[in-house]
Write a protein that binds this DNA or RNA. Structure first.
Length: 263
DNA sequence: ATGGTGGAAGGTCCA
């Protein structure tokens, strides 16, 4: 089973790029974040034409929004108003096998890393705390959690650990909370299962760099976590960096994972 | 210390 997660930064603007990813990677499941479209305006016909007959969308006008695209049927799991907001940052499904897929778009958190001065940062911290709560009491089903978590936890998940310690996405308080959330359900980091922690690994490069490839000041904001029972079935995990170099790209690269499915 | 770019808007907000 192949899954892809991608912060697409407007699904309507990048349908052609999504088609290319689907054609080249042939994923069974795609989790999108920042679809930026209300449900009534979601390009459902185009998505079905790509081979995804089963789609969950949770969108709003202009901001946020997630979608889960699947070639096989699933059951939608109950939604949740994270932090008491209806801001379309999570969706979850279960396949007939019992396997659950959770798609997350964690708040970016604004610029100032102080929850007392910056409501967006406070929201981000509260959101990750709620992830810890929810999954510490979750059922024992096999699960895949993927999406834009907007936090780069390891030193080599950013281009300069020292220079980003006060930059939102890599501050110690966020990293600590994400680490706690990961431990709360014994999640396994699928990308780092294949790429050792001493190697740089990024999924996002800012639009604001003059030459993003030359500068290579990236961060690993997008993640794939699996429950421990799936660890032995991890076959591959990879950042599809080439998509960041396409014309009119998202600032995030897609991340792909292959999981062997026993009969 | 600042600003750099991009998307959805059709103001500005958000990333």
């Amino acid at each position: 089973m192949r899954l892809v997660t991608w912060n697409i930064n407007s699904v309507r603007l990048r349908l052609d790029q999504l088609r290319r990813i689907v054609r080249e990677q042939e994923p069974d499941v795609v989790c999108l974040q920042e679809t930026k479209v209300a449900d009534g305006s979601f390009p459902m016909g185009e998505i079905r034409d790509m081979g995804f007959d089963h789609v969950m969308i949770r969108g709003m006008k202009s901001y946020n929004g997630i979608a889960i695209l699947s070639k096989t049927p699933f059951t939608a799991l109950p939604g949740r108003d994270w932090c008491g907001k209806q801001d379309c940052r999570h969706g979850a499904i279960a396949f007939d096998s019992g396997l659950e897929v959770h798609n997350f778009y964690v708040p970016a958190g604004g610029d100032l890393p102080d929850p007392d001065e910056n409501d967006k940062f406070a929201h981000k911290l509260a959101f990750v705390d709620e992830m810890t709560e929810v999954f510490s009491t979750a059922n024992g089903a096999s699960k895949i959690l993927m999406g834009d978590l907007n936090i780069a936890p390891l030193e080599n998940d950013v281009w300069s650990h020292k220079q980003l310690l006060k930059i939102v996405s890599h501050t110690p308080v966020e990293v600590e909370k994400l680490t706690r959330a990961k431990q709360a359900h014994d999640w396994v980091d699928a990308l780092r299962h294949f790429v050792p922690a001493d190697r740089k690994l990024y999924t996002w490069w800012s639009y604001r760099a003059r030459d993003w490839q030359a500068a290579d000041k990236g961060r690993r904001l997008d993640h794939v976590w699996v429950t421990p029972d799936l660890t032995g079935r991890l076959e591959a995990a990879e950042v599809l960096k080439e998509a960041r170099a396409w014309e009119k790209p998202s600032d995030h690269a897609p991340v792909m994972v292959d999981i062997g499915m026993s009969a």
